[in-house]
Write a protein that binds this DNA or RNA. Structure first.
Lengths: 232, 232
DNA sequence: GCGAACATACTGCCGGGTATGTTGTCAATC
DNA sequence: GATTGACAACATACCCGGCAGTATGTTCGC
């Protein structure tokens, strides 16, 4: 009966596992989530989880990495757009906030993962998995940082004295949906977009850009030249 | 030897316990923190912890409640100040951010506590301890909400369409120091104040108030009348 | 000599990890 | 085209360490 549930490519099982893990980790946090709980959430047992991942931490890292991938992809178009700095930043922010709302489980895990490097990570392999992740996070934030810096140099964006603090505050505002957003039955795509726009409006106004009195940018069609230049 | 370490009022032992617990909970999170770890952090053993608190959750709740108390006190002066809405809000924000930086351990625990009501809290007593805490959190945010609303009605503050989202974004920006701030050896009170001011400047600008082009408010001396009116 | 303020010793369970069984599938061989 | 065996994709059973909670000392001050 369970056999030959055909038309399920093998990658989907791993995907299903990642989603289940993300939801469990999000609901209770890493430490409080048992492997059995993740398995039960899929209607399976431990065996299935340990068939794909050698340890709980590896599973967590996979979820975390997926989260990183999601935000990178969500902001890629804005970052690479051939527009003014403020418009690029707006598009990046919209992409980021959209990802926070659409992939909330992954995003919350992603966030917990970053907070996790407090005290000693035992094995060296886990330690440099963490280090790799930190570097990716830095690279991600640097994208925002660079665009903001560009806009500030052009006099379009206003930043404060410890520049890093301005960025942190900005990013924190963009992260906020992971805290309060929860999908309801009545959320249409339009409603969801309105929420995202309000978050972005606030954050951009914090940088001195008044989107209410300005046309919201749209993602320009990418030329072939831009398509090939991703992140090499 | 350990006996008669005189001049230690008994309340200080509990205080010391709360601080140790806050630091441990902050470093590893609730689930990953063992009672033994908290005790070791004080150079004591489990017996001492369980002498003051019947369970781990009760200890956590005490830390959480203390965190709530801290933010309430930190924003009290601004909230009760006899000033315009924008100035009151600025003072509240400064107080809030200051608390985030000076009592980071308590604040992070406080935040984890709020996120914790995801799935079932077993005992009914714990459930309504949680409910009480949620109500306090709501009361706290309502203070900000009310002042922002007041300023918006006066046309001094600018808010967006789902008003709740504007508030959430604003609060999220004010919370951000718990993520990035960590006390260094070289942080003078002045430097710390500069950081706080930058966070508040960004957040207030998000509400349309340009503090760079405006005099920062100062806490007016409280009259006797105001002193008595706290939160009855 | 009684109780507060702890420390020490012990129990029971939960959960990460492992070792081993079971089932379906596919490929090669006859 | 039936047989076999090898392997993927799990499930089951078990082991054991860590930790919440408890029960029982121990010491000091009054």
């Amino acid at each position: 009966m369970t056999a030959n549930q055909n038309a399920e490519p093998q990658t989907d099982r791993l995907e299903e596992l990642l989603i289940a893990a993300a939801q469990c980790f999000q609901a209770r946090g890493y430490a409080a989530t048992s492997i059995d709980a993740v398995a039960r959430h899929m209607g399976a047992t431990k065996g299935r989880v340990y068939h794909y991942f050698p340890s709980k931490m590896d599973l967590f890292n996979a979820v975390r990495e997926r989260g990183m991938q999601i935000v990178f992809e969500a902001t890629e178009a804005g970052y690479c757009a051939n527009l003014a700095a403020a418009d690029r930043l707006t598009l990046m922010a919209l992409g980021h906030v959209g990802a926070m709302m659409r992939h909330r489980a992954f995003m919350q895990v992603h966030r917990e993962g970053l907070q996790m490097h407090r005290f000693g990570n035992a094995t060296p392999e886990q330690h440099d998995a963490m280090a790799r992740h930190i570097r990716q996070r830095d690279a991600y934030e640097r994208r925002f940082r660079d665009v903001v810096r560009l806009g500030a140099d052009n006099g379009v964006l206003r930043v404060g004295e410890p520049f890093a603090i301005t960025i942190q505050s900005f990013m924190s505002a963009l992260h906020s949906p992971v805290t309060w957003y929860s999908e309801r039955a009545d959320d249409t795509p339009e409603k969801l977009e309105q929420l995202a726009r309000e978050v972005v409006r606030f954050a951009m106004l914090g940088l001195g850009v008044d989107l209410a009195a300005r046309r919201w940018p749209e993602i320009p069609p990418l030329t072939d030249a831009l398509t090939d230049e991703g992140t090499p």
